Computed example of a mutant assay.
Amino acid sequence: MLELLPPLNDHNLPWMDTIHPIVVHFVIAMAVIAVVFDLIGVLTRRSTLFEVSFWNLLFATAAIFVAIIFGQVEAGLAEPYGRASEILNLHSTLGWSLAGVLSVLTGWRYVIRSRDPQSLPLPFLAAGGVLALLVVVQVTLGNQLIWIYGLHTVPVVEAVRQGVV
């Protein structure tokens, strides 16, 4: 299947640079802001923030699947070394898990919104807190892959190609 891709560049990618981090930043921002708006909406009793939160959650759910598609392709081309393989596997597994969590929360939120758009139950707010925590863990793993192990950076790709790493 890799023969279907164009030749790989100095980042070991068929396109100019990594796309996964670009898309995933939208997911991070929308998921976290949904939780924040829910909390602010509950504390200030401004139910209009619940609507903003719902739409952020909905778009985060759609965007995470785009991020996963690019993430899986880029992970397959990454050539991880040492402990980076373990972290990359955990990052991939948690990414798919987050897609499931976001999908369930969005569905739950749709039902809540359909029944009573003016309030949110406490268990949903708690689930939002768990979502935010999972996002923080996922961001930490992704940062390690880039800033510690340098996956898809030119020096690391060159070192792997030369057999140094």
Rank of each mutant, 00 (worst) to 15 (best):
P121L: 03
V32D: 07
D38S: 11
E74F: 00
D10A: 14
H152L: 08
V23L: 15
V137Y: 09
V139S: 07
T106Y: 07
L43S: 13
I68L: 15
L57T: 11
I22H: 01
P123T: 10
L58F: 13
A132Q: 06
H11E: 06
T140G: 14
G129I: 05
L122C: 03
D10V: 03
E51N: 12
V36K: 11
N89F: 10
Q118F: 15
H152K: 00
I148E: 15
L77W: 05
E86F: 11
F54S: 12
H25K: 08
Q162S: 14
L13V: 04
H20S: 06
P7S: 04
W147G: 00
T140I: 08
L49A: 09
N143S: 15
L90P: 00
F37W: 15
S119Y: 02
Q72I: 14
R83L: 14
Q138N: 04
A127F: 12
F50G: 12
S114T: 14
F54K: 05
I112A: 11
T48Y: 10
T106I: 03
L5W: 02
G82C: 04
V164A: 12
L98M: 13
I112M: 06
F70W: 03
S114G: 03
P117K: 03
Q144Y: 07
W108Y: 15
P117L: 04
H20D: 08
V156Q: 11
L145C: 07
A29L: 14
L88W: 02
I22E: 03
A159P: 01
H152R: 01
Q144G: 00
E51C: 02
L90D: 13
V23A: 08
